[in-house]
Design a protein around this nucleic acid. Structure first.
Lengths: 149, 149
DNA sequence: CTTGACTAGTTCTATGTCGTACTAAATAGT
DNA sequence: ACTATTTAGTACGACATAGAACTAGTCAAG
């Protein structure tokens, strides 16, 4: 029991550390993001630009690891701001497809510029080194958790 | 500009990975936690057991990297469930001190046991290896972000 | 075909968290 | 001593997110 508690403590400590880093990085990101746009919304725009749009909401939700409810809500916000359009999927009566608007693309690019400038004062060579050093392990951990949850 | 965008993409990718791991681990934790208790509440109890109680809310909030508001709310929940008591600080008219109750301690220990069992099927030697390998780097990153936000 | 299982998306409700603004107490500067 | 600043905690409102229940469309099995 004592050994298992030690391991449990180790696991908790690790995930706590992860949680705090997530907390801090999200806060920094939010601070450098224009007006009332939320990091998660920015993340969706970013995802659509990088991997291409015309995808169904459920696929985006699974990529972002959020529930469908959340995605419905987030897409509504982005739609209200004119950054995306949502059209019914011609090949699937249930489905919809998400497309970036020109406004959405320019907004994303501007946001990237803003945030990059903000991060420049915080992410130095040491931090980049850490990122590159542990990136592979993080990806493996994520994959494992995703497959065994 | 292209170089900075590359770095920006790298930073975003890293923090996205962190965010997803946090998401997944929190979900797993929540699933193995008794009835309606939230991971953040469990985290507070855990903190009080590990580092000792009798601390002011603001110190707990800073350790958890949440705002005072959030801590007020969380403590109210834990108080309603009888897991902690909150008494005024005799040395500081503004402050309060948070104490664990016997019920809170036993609850935390039981939760630890539950969650440990749940994690046993997910965290294997490989994952433990990753945790130990990158733990130092994570701590350094957290410290840096905390000091330079 | 027709039925049953599955999937995409939405609605409703609850809750955790944050930002802003406020009160009260402590502390520093003069 | 008095004022100004800082700090601890709270109240209120806004919002992102999750869970449960629901509708509608798809698809496979017979």
């Amino acid at each position: 029991m004592s050994e298992e508690n030690t391991i449990a403590a180790e696991v908790f400590g690790f995930f706590t550390e992860i949680g705090i880093i997530n907390q801090l990085s999200t806060a920094i990101l939010a601070k450098h993001l224009p007006d009332g746009i939320h990091p998660s919304h920015f993340s969706i725009l970013n995802h659509l630009v990088r991997l291409g749009d015309g995808k169904p909401p459920v696929r985006i939700a699974s990529a972002m690891q959020v529930t469908k409810n959340t995605m419905t809500h987030s897409l509504k916000v982005l739609q209200d701001r004119g950054y995306i359009t949502v059209a019914p999927d011609p090949d699937d009566g249930r489905g919809k497809l998400v497309y970036l608007t020109a406004s959405g693309r320019t907004f994303r690019n501007q946001a990237i510029a803003n945030v990059s400038e903000g991060f420049e004062h915080i992410i130095g060579p040491d931090q980049l080194g850490i990122m590159r050093r542990i990136g592979g392990d993080l990806k493996e951990m994520r994959k494992h958790l995703d497959e065994n949850r």
